[in-house]
Simulated scan of single mutants.
Amino acid sequence: MPAVRNCNLPEDVYYIVERHVWARKVGDLVEVGLTDVAQNLAKTIVSVTPKKVGRTLRAEQSVATVESGKWVGPVPCPVAGVLSEVNTEVVGNPPLINADPYGAGWIARIEPTDWETDSANLLTGPEAIAAYEQFLEREGISCGE
């Protein structure tokens, strides 16, 4: 997994770099979570409050609210669609996002309205890593500090 400024950034997910959110196609659904950068900036996540399953969301509309000792904010949905599943493990154990942001720490699964169109607006692969590198460098952000 590529690391930029000590932040883990897998190339196999899609990113909204400025919002520190990732998306991964899993079958017919899109898994959504916070990046390693987000969990490092937030520090220990203490609360995850998802929207209700069945809710229709626009791209970048909040799929959940996450709270830490330092920060409270929305988790923007990378694609438009219907919220089909919430990770109850993360709701019951929010620091799971800190421990495994791209695995067990996923937040929600969306049934996308138009994955092909919406994913074209997201960055993935080497292009995403390069964009994140520029962002982290510009903002002076490193993970694990």
Rank of each mutant, 00 (worst) to 15 (best):
M1T: 11
M1K: 10
M1I: 11
A3P: 00
A3T: 13
V4A: 07
R5F: 12
N6V: 06
C7I: 11
N8A: 06
L9F: 15
L9N: 06
E11L: 09
D12K: 02
V13W: 03
Y15P: 02
Y15N: 04
Y15G: 08
V17C: 05
V17R: 03
V17L: 08
E18M: 02
E18R: 07
R19L: 08
R19Q: 13
R19W: 00
R19D: 08
H20Y: 04
V21G: 05
V21P: 04
W22T: 01
W22M: 04
A23D: 07
R24E: 13
K25N: 06
G27D: 06
L29G: 00
V30L: 03
V32L: 10
V32T: 05
T35L: 07
D36H: 05
V37K: 02
A38I: 05
Q39K: 13
L41I: 14
L41S: 13
K43Y: 10
V46P: 13
V46R: 14
T49I: 12
P50L: 05
P50G: 05
P50H: 06
V53I: 13
V53P: 02
V53L: 01
G54D: 11
T56F: 03
T56Y: 00
A59E: 13
E60N: 06
Q61E: 15
Q61I: 10
S62L: 03
V63Q: 03
V63W: 02
A64C: 07
V66F: 03
S68K: 09
G69W: 02
K70Y: 02
K70H: 08
G73Q: 02
G73W: 05
G73K: 00
P74N: 14
P74Y: 03
P76Y: 09
P76Q: 12
P76V: 15
P78S: 08
P78A: 10
V79D: 00
A80V: 03
A80L: 10
G81D: 04
G81L: 07
V82M: 09
V82Y: 00
L83C: 08
L83G: 10
E85M: 09
E85S: 14
E85N: 11
V86R: 04
N87D: 14
T88I: 12
V90Q: 09
N93L: 14
N93G: 10
N93C: 11
P95N: 01
A99Q: 14
A99M: 11
D100Q: 12
P101R: 12
Y102V: 08
Y102R: 09
G103S: 03
R109K: 15
R109A: 04
R109M: 11
I110S: 08
I110K: 06
E111C: 01
E111P: 00
P112M: 08
T113W: 01
D114E: 09
W115S: 00
W115H: 05
E116H: 04
E116R: 10
E116W: 06
E116A: 15
T117I: 03
T117K: 07
D118Q: 04
D118K: 09
S119Y: 04
S119V: 10
A120F: 01
A120D: 02
N121R: 15
N121P: 00
N121I: 00
L122T: 08
L123F: 08
T124E: 12
G125D: 13
G125L: 03
G125R: 06
E127Y: 12
A130T: 08
A130P: 02
A131F: 05
Y132F: 14
Y132D: 05
E133W: 04
L136F: 15
R138A: 13
R138I: 07
R138T: 13
R138S: 11
E139C: 11
G144C: 10
E145P: 14
E145K: 04
